[in-house]
Design a protein around this nucleic acid. Structure first.
Length: 596
RNA sequence: GGUCCUGUAGCUCAACUGGAUAGAGCAACUGCCUUCUAAGCAGUAGGUUUCAGGUUCGAGUCCUGACAGGAUCACCA
């Protein structure tokens, strides 16, 4: 039983004894005491006045007295209005510290025997990744790590959108204007090469439309009849028919793109356990349409198209199969949904996809539940908001996208110049230095994108994201490096801080206590982040923890402390903080340096 | 137009899910490097939580209605 549970149990007892009332344990909750008041936990008595039949002040006092007498960790209390503030003994905090410090895997909850798949990234293969993908990838990776820490077995998957009209556009443009260019001859990363031709397609296509319009065609028909568009559509048809030449070009260009993506993923520090390719899955789902018809979940219209009626669920009728019997987007998503389950027997399936697809996933999940899938309740759309630029929305065709590779490179370069300016890397080898720049640059970027609640749209201001002060990744990394420095020194001069150097300690400063309180919260934060699928919870916690540590660091001496026990305790407290920062940042996919 | 999301300090974000005097960072200003990393710490200033009602001991949080921004409503993906 942890401290909070212990106090809650005593509160339960208090109501029984003082007011002869059996309070439901689950209904009792404590909240942190506000900084301006004495105490650590606060119990709000307002909701219970009908039970106590006393005024708020008297109720608080009566319960407080009981706890002081009967709950050993509670040493004191005060009542302000209806708020009962509880102080906890130093010994309890020291106990908690010892427990955390000697607990080998405090950052991981026990396995719960459940499997979850997290699908994220899911790129199109016609262009390189951009800023929006960065948010997606960092989120997906971090949520996977967080779910692992919550005891799930996690399968990270990537559903690659490798076929369709978009890649055909790149292929058509390449055929016309490529002159046999390859990543090798052009010096371009494969994904950037494909993207280059996607842009060329759009440019030439627009010229053709303009030409047609000038010849008197309406814009609508011009868009449909432009030769390049017709050619792309024909290419898609040929691809589906298995035309050898087209398939060959498709394979070649996609393989270039994958090489490019691999490099980008590596730099981002994300990975996948399972790749799905849409070229393999796009025909799936038709059998489910059949099943749905038989079960009466779907119905057929006169022209042969198949629909689902979700009006009872507050949505509309939705098409699941075209009149000509071909699939739509949701058809294959139904199929892939089953495929994932059949492959891994997962209990939960998380889709990290932007909020512009809220409606689509709402429909998909409702359909799968209507069909009675065993994993139906485990389907979750982790919907995240767009990333805006100060100049407005990113539009790939207008060239206002922020390229992922460029941005990461820029962040690393900024980290480098900033670090050199501060002149703190004496004695670093060239290799160590560039490793540090990577860690800092990417740490800054990841933290910037992860600290915001996923579901909110966010503004990406290049200037601010590059800041290294305040609520940033490097600030947290810096706090870790400071501690690492202390530990090096402690090892060097032979201070024992492993377990028993502070066994008989019986005093505790306020900042030390505040730090322990915060460290003790880690498990709760991991749980909350898992329940809410929100790395932002961890990010916020990391910042608060680092800030608390820096306060401790500034206020209290360590190596100038004359009392050996206090000294080794402070070093141990620092070590535990470092470990918590390391584990927490790992959940965000951010590395922490030992020196910076 | 229907549906959904968002609206908090000049800017970027929090607020433990209904609790006390709404908190951080950036930007501005003031202190602190002869103690362990100043990428730090302490402090000052900055608010009618978009607006109007309602629910109750108590509302940034819940309900209703405005207003603003965004997404979506394809036999596209």
């Amino acid at each position: 039983m942890n401290l909070e549970e212990q106090i809650i149990s005593s509160l339960h007892q208090a109501f029984k004894t003082c007011f002869d009332h059996n309070l439901n344990i689950g209904e009792i909750s404590l909240q942190p005491t506000r900084k301006d008041f004495e105490g650590t936990f606060t119990f709000v008595v307002f909701p219970y006045l009908k039970i106590t039949k006393l005024n708020p002040e008297a109720s608080g006092n009566k319960i407080g007295e009981f706890l002081k007498e009967n709950c050993p960790p509670v040493t004191d209390f005060n009542v302000v209005k209806g708020f009962l503030n509880l102080s906890v003994s130093k010994a309890s905090w020291l106990d908690i510290f010892k427990k955390l410090y000697t607990h080998p895997s405090f950052a991981k909850l026990p396995a719960n025997g459940k499997k979850v798949m997290v699908e994220y990234s899911s790129p199109n293969t016609n262009k390189p990744l951009h800023l929006g993908h960065l948010r997606n990838n960092f989120l997906g990776y971090a949520v996977s790590e967080i779910l692992k820490a919550n005891g799930y077995e996690v399968i990270k998957s990537n559903l690659v959108n490798d076929r369709g009209i978009h890649i055909c556009k790149s292929m058509v443009a390449y055929k016309h204007y490529g002159n046999g260019e390859t990543p090798e001859t052009s010096g371009l990363k494969g994904d950037h090469l494909a993207g280059k031709y996607y842009v060329i397609f759009d440019k030439e296509y627009k010229k053709q439309i303009q030409g047609l319009v000038e010849n008197g065609e309406a814009e609508e028909t011009a868009k449909k009849n432009a030769p390049l568009m017709l050619e792309a559509q024909e290419m898609l048809r040929l691809w589906e028919a298995g035309n050898e030449e087209v398939v060959q070009l498709w394979k070649t260009m996609n393989s270039w793109v994958y090489q490019g993506f691999d490099a980008t993923y590596k730099k981002m520090g994300v990975d996948f356990d399972k790749y799905y390719y849409e070229s393999d899955t796009y025909l799936l789902g038709k059998n489910i349409v059949e099943e749905g018809l038989q079960k009466g979940v779907f119905f057929k219209k006169e022209n042969g198209s198949v629909w689902v009626d979700l009006s009872e669920e507050g949505l509309d009728e939705k098409l699941v199969l075209r009149a000509d019997g071909t699939s739509v987007y949701i058809t294959q998503d139904m199929g892939t949904c089953d495929l994932k389950y059949n492959d891994f027997k997962i209990d939960k399936s998380v889709y990290v996809v932007g909020n512009e697809q809220d409606y689509h996933f709402d429909v998909l999940f409702k359909i799968m539940r209507k069909l009675g899938r065993p994993y139906g309740d485990g389907l979750y759309h982790l919907s995240y908001g767009m990333v805006d630029l100060p100049t407005g929305k990113m539009k790939s065709r207008e060239g206002t996208v922020v390229d992922a590779d460029d941005l990461m490179q820029e962040m690393v370069a900024t980290a480098e110049s900033h670090t050199k300016e501060l002149g703190k890397i004496e004695g670093f080898t060239q290799e160590q230095a560039s490793e540090l720049y990577e860690v800092l640059g990417l740490g800054a970027l990841k933290y910037f994108l992860l600290k915001v609640d996923p579901k909110k749209r966010m503004l990406f201001n290049p200037q601010e994201s590059i800041e290294f002060q305040g609520n940033t990744g490097p600030f947290i990394q810096y706090s870790h490096a400071r501690i690492a420095s202390i530990l090096r020194k402690a090892d060097q001069i032979g201070v024992n801080y492993q377990k028993d150097g502070f066994e008989h300690l019986n005093q505790l400063e306020g900042t030390e206590r505040d730090l322990i309180v915060m460290l003790n919260d880690f498990e709760k934060k991991i749980r909350q982040a898992g329940e809410e699928y929100s790395p932002a919870v961890i990010a916020q916690y990391m910042f608060d923890l680092a800030k608390e540590y820096n306060r401790f660091y500034a206020e209290l001496p360590i190596f100038n402390e004359s009392d050996n026990q206090i000294q080794s305790f402070r070093i141990a407290l620092s070590a535990l903080t470092a470990q918590t920062i390391r584990e927490g940042m790992k959940l965000l996919g951010i590395k922490v340096p030992d020196r910076m």
